[in-house]
Nucleic acid binder design. Structure first.
Lengths: 169, 169
DNA sequence: ATTGACAGTTCTAAAATAGAACCTTAAAGC
DNA sequence: GCTTTAAGGTTCTATTTTAGAACTGTCAAT
């Protein structure tokens, strides 16, 4: 499987992974959420090579996660800010951080703490059901094929099936 | 930066990314949450090369996300099941799927729908504050250094500062 | 006139991944 | 008894990605 086929898979996880599913993209996004915006700032705080940073920023702009906007003329300089699509990645970032807080910290404890401005408390993120508000667990969720699912065995009208559709999975 | 230094970074996101921050690990975990357990099942549904699948499974076992248990003797055969540490990845997987549902679906709609067994409804995952229960947004969160934070500017004893230490972040 | 900041681009070497073939154990079919 | 099939890998070469360092271009400040 190649990387550009990934974003066309009939799977929302695969398509998202095509955008953020590499080490550097997630680290760059961490910096974005910590209010970093500029090439040099990303490069020096991450230690990423300039080559790869340039490429990842282009990719994130291409996918609409970041926007590249000039912050000065002559010489023209740009900074990268999160779009709404990018801001919507926050639950992913926070759930990743939270898992690390629970399972990957050493004896010194958490590197970072989060305070909710709304209520003033230090908090952890919790994922709940949009309908009943209860915390979610894998066992309590049933998965159904949706309208965009790959057709594995249509009951009829096989003939007009998409010839590009892959079998299996 | 090399991959094995990532898991020692004083950052919960970096350490988690060291475990799941590549394309295949996340796709393998998707299959795990869809109740796939066996080498051949992973391989045929993902199209991953056998070589890489073996390596990724070893890595996930090494990090305690999966456990390799025999399901028959002679010939000895193993299957891979999620540990509690692995099950705790569910919010990450679900937030990734949800972002894809919102931002990456085509005109056909969502490939998969989720039903909450507890309340019976089709739902979306929502990330809320553990203390007040309100949905979280990046702007409403303030970040503080925690006990495991990297020391960026000790008040004294500057002289014995680690010369390799990066500034910022 | 030289230095430095910023935002990249361009090279070569090293590492990771793809793709295919091969190995081992043991049961099933002929 | 011999061959095929299944499961769960391992081994090999070719291609792609990434690392690491140097270089470019524009302008401001010294």
């Amino acid at each position: 499987m190649k990387w550009d086929t990934l974003e066309e898979e009939p799977c929302s996880l695969a398509r998202t992974v095509a955008v953020i599913g590499d080490r550097w993209s997630l680290l760059i996004l961490r910096e974005c959420f910590l209010r970093k915006r500029r090439f040099e700032a990303f490069q020096s705080s991450l230690g990423i090579t300039r080559h790869l940073l340039a490429e990842r920023l282009k990719k994130l702009v291409r996918f609409g996660v970041l926007r590249r906007i000039p912050y000065q003329e002559s010489p023209k300089r740009y900074e990268y800010i999160l779009t709404q699509k990018g801001l919507d990645l926050y639950p992913i970032i926070m759930s990743i951080v939270h898992w690390g807080n629970v399972h990957m910290v050493d004896s010194r404890g958490r590197p970072m703490l989060h305070q909710h401005k709304n209520c003033g408390h230090m908090f952890d993120p919790v994922m709940v059901c949009s309908e009943c508000g209860e915390p979610l667990t894998a066992k309590a969720v049933h998965v159904h094929p949706g309208p965009g699912a790959r057709q594995t065995s249509p009951t009829h009208a096989m003939a007009e099936d998409d010839p590009k559709a892959k079998t299996g999975s």
